[in-house]
Structure formats: structure tokens, C-alpha cells
Design a protein around this nucleic acid. Structure first.
Length: 198
DNA sequence: AAACACGTCAACCGCCTCTAC
DNA sequence: AGTAGAGGCGGTTGACGTGTT
């Protein structure tokens, strides 16, 4: 699809990139609330967003959808991710289907930033008797983890050092999005959307 | 207080697959 | 059967916040 320039030169609309603004989010939420999702390219145009259809789709699926859960991956979810990744490798969307409210992007990020790091640490500490193989490069990557190794990782992951002491205290509406100064919660956006009327 | 290092995650990129024509 | 457009997916990057020195 994007093998060709996305601006069909006939209409030289400049395409916005980078972080989404609150206004753009509201426009997208509003539009989808009224017209439904799908046919993203025409949706983007019809909604008056200077974004590609792909960008709109990604924003909706990963952030704006009302059922999306953010932050605070539970130890159960983490174990499930590890199990499914061992089974399927980097099939993030497939894995995400088994974690309601989680997106492939979130799981992918979680895996790369948290689990992979700890796997490497565990790899370094692994004793010869333990069965622990990691091949995290290819998309066919497989992880086979002995129960002992899982236990070890579970301990480290349930409360990684860089986590707040009480993960459960994380408000679900305060995403791991503490990183952006102009963040707004989805609840805010949805309530504004409701206030705008339909 | 400033500088640097590190961690996190939203968003983009490029490729692949599917579908309609 | 070939082509083009759209959606989906996995990999990667860049910006920003936080921790450390």
C-alpha cells in the first residue's frame, strides 16, 4: 500500500506526522462514534484529519478505543505473554487477541523493554542445568523456558525494580503515558466526546 | 543544579496479504 | 491472471521522563 507516495499529487494535502493532538483525537473519536470505523483512508479525509489512514487506524486501535486497557500489566498477563510468545514467537497481534484490551503494540513494547531485558539478565545468571534458550532476533524467535526459569522471571517481573512499589495503585486512567506533558486520559476524551453530543 | 545514561512507549516505516476489479 | 488499493503486522526510531552521578 504505502509502496507509493501517499499524496496522490492531484491533491497536495500535507500529511501530519508525530504525536496526536487532543483536537485530532477528539475529531477521530467523534467521527468514529458517528460513522463507525474502517476504510481508514477515506475516514481520515472525511473527518478532515491531515493524517494517513494508517495513522488514524493505529491511533484508534492502540490508544483511543474505549476498551483499550493501559499500563499495569498483571503478573498473570505477563505469564500468558511469555507462554504465548514461547508458542508463537513474535506474533504480537495473535498474542494480543488472547489478552483482552491489550494491543499488539503494547505487548510488543512490554516484551522488548521488560521481559527481554530480564531474559538476558537471567541468561547471564543461568546455571548449566537449566533449560533456557532465547533467540530474540528473528521474527521466528522462540523461547523455551523451564518452570524454574519462569519462576525466577516471575519474581523479577512481578515487581521490577523500576516499577512503583505498588503497581496496583496505578490508576488505570493514568497511563504509562506519564512521559508526555500533553497527555490526556481517554476518559477525558470520551467524556468530552459525550459532552459534544453524539 | 547540571549533565549524562537509561527506560519507556507512541508513532512511523516497510513489507506482506487480501480483496475487488 | 494481473494490478491497485487497503488493511494488517512486526521492526524500529525518536522524544520525553526519570534516575544517577
Amino acid at each position: 500500500m504505502d509502496k507509493k507516495p501517499c499524496n496522490s499529487s492531484s491533491q497536495d494535502v500535507e500529511v501530519r506526522k508525530g504525536p496526536w493532538t487532543m483536537e485530532e483525537d477528539l475529531i477521530l473519536i467523534n467521527y468514529i462514534a458517528n460513522h463507525g470505523e474502517g476504510v481508514w483512508n477515506s475516514l481520515a479525509k472525511a473527518a478532515g484529519l491531515k493524517r494517513t489512514g494508517k495513522s488514524c487506524r493505529l491511533r484508534w486501535l492502540n490508544y483511543l478505543r474505549p476498551d483499550v486497557r493501559r499500563g499495569n500489566i498483571t503478573p498473570e498477563e505477563q505469564l500468558l505473554i511469555m507462554e504465548l510468545h514461547a508458542k508463537w514467537g513474535n506474533r504480537w497481534s495473535k498474542i494480543a487477541k488472547h489478552l483482552p484490551g491489550r494491543t499488539d503494540n503494547e505487548i510488543k513494547n512490554y516484551w522488548r523493554t521488560r521481559i527481554q531485558k530480564h531474559i538476558k539478565q537471567a541468561e547471564n545468571n543461568i546455571t548449566p542445568g537449566q533449560n533456557f534458550e532465547v533467540n530474540d532476533q528473528a521474527s521466528t524467535s522462540q523461547v523455551s523456558i523451564s518452570s524454574a526459569a519462569v519462576d525466577t522471571m516471575e519474581i523479577t517481573h512481578a515487581a521490577p525494580a523500576n516499577y512503583p512499589p505498588n503497581m496496583d495503585a496505578y490508576p488505570s486512567s493514568l497511563p504509562a503515558d506519564h512521559s508526555h506533558e500533553n497527555y490526556w486520559s481517554i476518559e477525558d476524551l470520551w467524556s468530552m466526546q459525550l459532552l459534544n453530543g453524539e
